[in-house]
């Protein structure tokens, strides 16, 4: 099976129903994408498929097809991803950081699709990403900060 991840081609020999999360982490070794629940409830595993945020823990790798996969390791190369990462550092959004690859991916997808998101749009895009450390206040500020940048 051929996968396009962060612009590079990868050949993997895995069953079709293996979630993309485990292909990316265990087979390819890109461990920035996190496992948090396995049931699409926490968002820690969020990656982009052709720029759209999806939960890789529930995405069978066989369903990816030719779509371009972007992970936290590669999202900095996109304009929205770079803006979000910078805003996250400027405002010190991060605490333990474990949920943050997912937060950054969801926020970057939001910003790419909606350059000036209001609170409602932020809720709609980010409510699927849990943060046990409670960084929500700053995530909200971070997205607005990035939108202004």
């Amino acid at each position: 099976m051929d996968l396009k991840i962060n612009g590079a081609d990868h050949q993997v020999d895995v069953p079709d129903n293996m979630p993309l999360l485990w292909v990316v982490r265990d087979v390819i070794g890109l461990t920035g994408t996190k496992f948090g629940c396995g049931i699409a409830q926490c968002g820690a595993c969020t990656v982009h498929l052709d720029g759209v945020a999806v939960r890789s823990c529930q995405l069978p790798v066989g369903a990816v097809g030719g779509r371009a996969i972007t992970t936290i390791e590669g999202v900095g190369a996109t304009p929205a991803g770079a803006k979000i990462q910078k805003a996250w550092l400027d405002l010190e959004v991060i605490q333990c950081g474990y949920c943050q690859p997912g937060q950054v991916m969801s926020a970057a997808a939001l910003l790419a699709a909606n350059p000036q998101p209001d609170d409602e749009a932020i809720d709609a895009a980010m409510a699927g990403n849990l943060c046990r450390c409670g960084t929500y206040v700053r995530i909200r500020e971070g997205i607005k900060h990035a939108a202004r940048a």
Partner: peptide
Amino acid sequence: RMFEGNCVACHAWTGAGAII
């Protein structure tokens, strides 16, 4: 609110299914 937090990840805002 419940939908955006718990459901969108799999079902998508279009209801077309985000993943499968």
